[in-house]
């Protein structure tokens, strides 16, 4: 039972990270209709920038994540302008390859700046909490709490704020939205920036319990794609449910079956779900 509680919290913390990363990706898909394969690289850059501000410059942890997130927002906007905007009328094959090109570039850049060695980011948040007999590190509790707060803020932003509503409007009907005066270009930039910002928060949270390396985004990338497809492309609730579900499935199968199955479970679940419901769990009306 202690093991179960322990793994449940581990799964929840992992789920928080998956969610933050997946929501950005699914938003980008909803607005730009492109699978952004460079998302993992943005996550990696976010982690390194957080590391840079925390360790090299010496600003406090939360501020470091904040500054890095804002910088990544700019990187996201730049990516939209330089890469995805010129391709807005191309089929998604082109986006994918362009994104792979961007990913190669970001990884090589990070290696050129910070080197190939693993880096460790020390967190100011230390100590353990004892919950029902299980030892849970404070960092994991922070991850879960921050993820929930950020998700709530995001929901408020999209549903209530003017800028956020433009995102939803474009997602629902691109032509209609431009007719009422929403600029799709601006919204595309905003969305990509936002997705990079969310990825940075995820990276900043998870970095202290793992290591930084230029390829740290690769493993996350595939899983996050599985999550947003599982939840239904462009669906926010889908990304949230998918993120937590897959994370918990992953830790639990790794615990009770084997680590190999744990690694593959995301994809097995994906194949099974899509075989039954080819458009994912939370389908939105797909518009062209």
């Amino acid at each position: 039972m202690t093991l179960f509680i322990q793994q449940l919290f581990n799964g929840l913390a992992l789920g928080g990270v998956y969610c933050l990363a997946a929501i950005g990706l699914t938003l980008v898909f909803g607005v730009l209709r492109i699978p952004n394969l460079a998302h993992g690289a943005l996550y990696m850059l976010g982690a390194y920038l957080t590391y840079f501000f925390l360790t090299t410059i010496g600003v406090p942890y939360i501020a470091a994540i904040g500054i890095a997130a804002i910088m990544l927002f700019v990187v996201g906007v730049g990516l939209e302008r330089l890469v995805f905007h010129p391709l807005r009328n191309s089929p998604h094959t082109h986006h994918m390859i362009a994104a792979v090109g961007a990913m190669f570039f970001f990884q090589a850049l990070a290696q050129a700046i910070w080197g190939a060695d693993f880096r460790r980011m020390d967190t100011p948040i230390t100590g353990e909490l004892r919950i029902l007999g299980a030892e849970i590190s404070a960092q994991r509790i922070v991850i879960i709490v921050v993820a929930v707060i950020v998700l709530a803020l995001l929901a408020w932003f999209i549903k209530r704020s003017i800028h956020g509503q433009t995102i939803e409007a474009i997602e629902q009907d691109r032509v209609g939205a431009s007719l009422v005066g929403i600029n799709p270009s601006m919204v595309s930039m905003l969305t990509l920036g936002l997705s990079a910002l969310l990825a940075t928060i995820a990276a900043g949270l998870v970095a202290p319990i793992n290591l930084l390396s230029p390829t740290m985004g690769d493993a996350l990338n595939l899983k996050v794609f599985a999550i947003i497809i599982l939840g239904g492309l462009g669906s926010l609730p889908g990304a949230i449910v998918g993120g937590f579900a897959l994370a918990i499935a992953e830790t639990m199968t790794a615990t009770y079956i084997s680590s190999g199955v744990g690694e593959a479970v995301a994809f097995i679940v994906l194949v099974a779900v899509l075989a039954i419901k080819p458009t994912g769990l939370f389908t939105k009306a797909v518009q062209r």
Binding site: P86, L87, A98, G101, A102, F105, A108, A112
Partner: peptide, 17 residues
């Protein structure tokens, strides 16, 4: 060597665009 993708990445993007 390690830095080839700093050059190759943008070339790929440029070709696609």
């Amino acid at each position: 060597q390690a830095y080839r993708f700093i050059v190759l990445g943008p070339i790929i993007v440029a070709l696609v665009i």
